[in-house]
Amino acid sequence: MRGWDGLRDAPAVQALRLYGLVAAGGFRRFATYRAATFAGVFTNTVFGFILAYTFIALWHERPQLGGYDQAQALTFVWVGQALLAPAALLGFGFQEELQERIRSGDVAVDLYRPADLQLWWCAHDMGRAAFQLLGRGVVPLAAGALAFELALPTAVHTWLLFLLSVALGCLVSFAIRYLVGLAAFWLLDGQGINLINSLVAMLLSGTLLPLTVFPGAFGDVAQALPWAAMLQVPADVLLGRHTGAGLAGALAFQAVWAGALLAAGRAMQAVATRKVVVQGG
């Protein structure tokens, strides 16, 4: 008889429970760094204030720049600060740990575990993102809303769609950094590629300026690249700039990039695994 017990033993359910635990572990690990969290909130808030004033100056000269009014532009600033840590907009993250394990050869042990390497790190990183969204995202956004006039939505479903978009953005962010991490199989040290990753993420996610403000073709290309899924799309979802089919399109844009990059990660992982098996690490 297959009742609840049978279901509980199903491989898929067991896997779900395993990665759920890994994600919870990631959440807890970052929750223990209290002073670091506080320091991060402080820094995000300070940068939010500085950027907000520069945006006010720019939108004072050019109202409606990039299709935003001033309140929307300021909202963009504070959403950017709120997502800086969870979506790893500066490109820092777990991949340095992964690279270290690849360099030391410990990754061979990880690859022979019954858990999948990509899913393992993904669950861990999503747990981290969840904590940082709560621990480092809420306060700066609230501070911004108190100090400036923001264009925050009142409808609950907009906030829910925003959260969905943020989750997809974090997934894209993870998928990119996983590729960067695996690059350590072929590179002597990860310093160079990490630097490039940070540079590209900072510039093309819209952390410095909304991508809609980028000039000409550069702006169009930037908005089609995966980094746009990390901040530009979630911010626009929150600002209600996508409706109906456009909204579905925006979320699909994120989901397609996430799927494609995760698939690329799997392919790269398969090649790397073969390399480990052939060369013995």
Binding site: A35, A36, A39, T43, V46, F47
Partner: peptide, 12 residues
């Protein structure tokens, strides 16, 4: 573990 606070004053 509050190294990041100074970032507000230096990089900020």
């Amino acid at each position: 573990d509050a190294a990041e606070v100074q970032n507000s004053f230096t990089y900020g």
